Amino acid sequence: MKLLICLLLLIIHVLPGYSQNDSVETQIQLKTYLEETSVPLNREVVYCIELSWIGDLSRYRIVEPGDPVITNLELRRSGSSNRAYTDSAGNPRSVKTISYYFRPLEMGMAYIDGVVIRYEDRFTESEESLLANRLSAKIIEPVPENKNGGLLIKILIQLIVIIFILTVIYFVVKYFRQKKINQSAEQEVRLTLEDRFLERLEKELDHSKKTAKENLDCFSKIIFDYFNKKYSIPSAAGIYPVINKLTEDGVDESIINKLKQYSDMINLSRFAGENISESDLHLFIDTFEQLLNELNNRQNR
């Protein structure tokens, strides 16, 4: 009987010990601290509540403690973060940190009263609570603000904006210039040889500023340049190879006859010194324009 009583006492004594060890292994460790205990008036007091335990983050559900009671401080914002790591013994550890950011009101001492932190153990379905310590901070004179640094940042931002705007303007201008060049190139490609020589007649002949002889020389150069490009006939070859080509192309006979007359008058002007009247020159220019338009129309059919 005595032996049975001794065994019961031994079991009662041992079992609580095992229960206590299990509780220790899974309990939450609480740590409260200030990032700085001496804080200038124009800086923030940062109060941190750190909860850590062995196991996964999902093991405990932490109830947010709410805002603490404070003295000589004003709450600006708060937040929380989680992290997990493996300790030196190879155990997975989880840490939850709740941070409060306060603005000091005046120089002197500031106090943050302890808060009650409740949590639920999802494994055992039990609820517990912890009490954070009351902490104090000394609020000292404000430190000078780095105004030059702020000014440099503003200047830098303005420079970035200006560079961005100039870059946009550069590429926009470049785009429209390139577009204009492309359009001009396309238009140039669409122009026939006859179109280009019609433009030359309009640009290079000036009856109001040039004499009849100057216009005649200019017109002669234009007409022989055209036949050279059209039929690869040099100006020194004379008018007859040109007439043969025009006849082969089926050009109207009246135009061919007027070109013969023009050639004869050019020769008389050069070698016999006879002048060509302004009206004759206009007639030959009109004949050449008529030839260009006729050949141009044939190509567009």
Rank of each mutant, 00 (worst) to 15 (best):
K2A: 02
L3R: 11
L4T: 00
L10D: 00
I11V: 02
I12N: 00
I12P: 00
L15R: 02
P16F: 01
P16S: 04
G17S: 05
S19W: 14
Q20E: 08
N21I: 14
N21W: 15
D22L: 12
D22M: 13
E25L: 10
Q27K: 13
Q29S: 06
S38G: 02
S38I: 01
V39H: 07
V39N: 06
P40F: 05
P40T: 07
L41E: 04
C48S: 13
C48K: 15
I49D: 15
E50V: 05
S52H: 04
W53Q: 05
L57V: 06
S58W: 11
R59K: 12
E64A: 09
E64F: 14
P65T: 01
G66F: 10
D67C: 03
D67M: 06
P68C: 11
I70W: 04
R83N: 09
T86L: 07
D87I: 08
A89G: 10
G90D: 08
R93P: 01
T97G: 01
Y100R: 01
Y100K: 10
Y101N: 02
P104K: 04
G108N: 12
M109H: 13
A110N: 05
Y111S: 09
D113N: 10
G114Q: 07
V116K: 10
E120S: 15
E125Q: 12
S126I: 11
L130C: 06
L130P: 08
N133W: 08
S136M: 04
P144H: 10
N148T: 03
G149R: 11
L151I: 08
I153V: 08
L159A: 06
I160G: 10
I162Q: 09
I165P: 06
L166H: 06
L166G: 06
T167G: 14
V173S: 08
K174Y: 09
F176E: 14
R177F: 09
Q178A: 07
I181C: 07
Q183P: 01
Q183H: 10
E188D: 12
R190Q: 14
R190E: 15
E194I: 00
L198A: 07
L201M: 05
H207I: 05
S208T: 02
K209L: 10
K213E: 01
N215I: 03
N215A: 05
L216D: 00
S220A: 01
K221M: 10
I223Y: 14
F224S: 13
D225N: 11
Y226G: 03
Y231L: 02
I233N: 04
I233K: 13
P234Q: 11
P234K: 05
P234S: 12
A237L: 02
A237Q: 06
I239N: 12
N244R: 12
K245H: 05
V251L: 13
D252E: 13
I255N: 07
K258G: 00
L259Y: 10
K260A: 03
Q261A: 12
Q261L: 12
Y262D: 05
M265K: 04
M265L: 08
R270P: 01
F271H: 15
F271W: 09
A272T: 02
N275C: 00
S277Y: 00
S279T: 08
S279C: 03
I285H: 01
T287Q: 11
L291C: 02
L291A: 00
L295G: 09
L295I: 02
Q299S: 09
